Simulated assay, not measured.
Amino acid sequence: MMSFFNKLTGRSDKGPPKRVLTSDMHAHFLPGIDDGASSMEESLFLIKKLMDCGYTKLVATPHVMNDFFKNTPEIIYSKLFEVKEAVVAEGWDIEIEAAAEYYLDEWFMGMLQNNNPLLTFGDRYLLFETSFINQPAQLHEAIFLMQSLSYKPVLAHPERYVYFQDNFEKCAELYRNGVLLQININSLSGYYSTPAQLLAEKLIDKKMVHFAGTDCHALKHVKALELSRTKKYYTKLLDSELLNYAL
């Protein structure tokens, strides 16, 4: 029989409690500013679905990309304020913050070179992404600039980049150089591709994953989470030293 102490702490007589992921640091639910939620109604729908998955803190990371999504801190914070007001009106108990997912292009390089204010989450974590096919020529320069400005670069979904799938050493080099790696939970079920799943599993095996994100844009991603969270590598991921737990 479970002891009174164990009931209080959530432990069982069969072993230590399982970790639970309650903070998501990569999602696209701010309405109407990127390829995520298109309306406040859809934004609230996604937030509620993520709450149903056990999340109590969500960090919105809208795309910042010169050719498509020219989001600024002012635009992002304005939408964040609207969403937070709507969440309060619903009476939901969830923490909502915002940062950004910066695409490594000439615009982003210019912002780094000019030391323009960039949106971060947690301990100056700066989320960025690259082309899925080719490694950008300025990748290492961008990382150097981020670190020189006291940002902590977080590479979004490295498992999805073909240039890492074809050459794991390139990914390992970034890890050794202090780049934090964030995998998408849905990669664990092969949602994006089998190569992405295999690379995500390899990163978990080698204890190279710092963050796990939903990268939620729409209902289809929340539905995919249901399957992804049943995979053995999801349990293995939760047992690793994720920085999500400190957010």
Rank of each mutant, 00 (worst) to 15 (best):
M1E: 11
F5W: 14
N6I: 03
S12V: 08
K14I: 09
P16Q: 03
P16E: 05
R19V: 04
T22M: 13
D24E: 08
M25W: 03
H28R: 06
L30H: 00
G32M: 05
G32N: 04
D34M: 10
D34Q: 06
G36P: 08
A37W: 02
S39G: 11
M40I: 08
E41A: 15
L44Y: 03
K49N: 06
L50N: 03
L50C: 12
G54I: 04
T56F: 11
T56H: 14
T56P: 13
L58F: 05
L58N: 00
L58P: 07
V59A: 04
V64T: 09
V64E: 00
D67T: 05
D67N: 11
N71L: 11
P73K: 01
P73Y: 04
P73S: 06
E74F: 09
E74R: 12
E74P: 10
I76A: 03
S78K: 13
S78F: 07
L80C: 05
L80Y: 01
F81W: 02
V83S: 05
K84Y: 05
V88K: 15
D93W: 02
I94W: 05
E95D: 13
E97F: 06
E97P: 07
A100G: 09
A100W: 00
A100Y: 01
Y103H: 15
M109V: 01
M111V: 00
M111A: 11
L112N: 00
L112Q: 01
N115R: 14
F121P: 04
F121Q: 02
F121E: 00
D123C: 13
R124M: 14
Y125M: 12
L127E: 01
E129I: 10
I133T: 12
Q135M: 15
A137S: 15
A137T: 13
Q138T: 07
Q138R: 10
L139Y: 02
H140K: 14
A142T: 00
F144P: 10
Q147R: 12
Q147D: 06
S148C: 10
L149E: 00
L149N: 10
L149I: 01
S150T: 07
P153M: 06
P153H: 03
A156R: 03
H157S: 09
E159D: 09
R160Y: 03
Y161I: 01
Y161F: 12
V162Y: 03
Y163Q: 10
Y163G: 12
F164M: 12
E173S: 08
G178Y: 04
V179I: 14
V179E: 07
L180Q: 05
L180D: 00
Q182N: 08
N184C: 13
I185K: 06
N186D: 09
S187E: 01
G190V: 08
Y191T: 04
Y192I: 10
T194K: 15
P195C: 10
A196L: 11
A200S: 15
K202I: 06
I204D: 02
M208K: 12
M208F: 05
H210A: 09
A212Y: 05
T214C: 13
D215H: 06
H217A: 10
H221G: 03
V222M: 11
V222A: 10
K223C: 08
K223M: 13
L227P: 02
K231H: 11
Y233A: 11
T235H: 14
L238S: 08
E241C: 11
E241I: 02
L242D: 01
L243V: 05
N244P: 13
A246N: 09
